[in-house]
């Protein structure tokens, strides 16, 4: 039994060593930022400054 367990243990980690990088690559490749698009002129007066972005990406003074 112990030999089987040892082999299974190594096999599991080799499979994980292959699958985990593939999973991470696929997950990161599919990552997307919040959808953005031009705000039409008619709606521009009703736009508010984004309050969920890092300070560095905000317009100064807002």
């Amino acid at each position: 039994m112990i030999r089987t367990l040892r082999r299974r243990h190594l096999a599991v980690w080799i499979v994980l060593a292959i699958l985990i990088p593939v999973l991470l690559y696929a997950a990161l490749r599919a990552r997307r930022s919040a959808p953005a698009g031009a705000i039409p002129e008619a709606l521009a007066p009703y736009a508010a400054p984004a309050d969920d972005v890092a300070e560095s990406s905000k317009i100064e003074g807002r």
């Binding site: 930022s33 919040a34 959808p35 953005a36 698009g37 031009a38 705000i39 709606l43 009703y46 736009a47 508010a48 400054p49 984004a50 309050d51 972005v53 990406s57 905000k58 317009i59 807002r62």
Partner: peptide, 14 residues
């Protein structure tokens, strides 16, 4: 929620 592109001073319309 409509968001203007980043870099142009993000603005949001809800």
């Amino acid at each position: 929620v409509v968001r203007s592109p980043a870099g142009d001073g993000e603005r949001i319309v809800v």
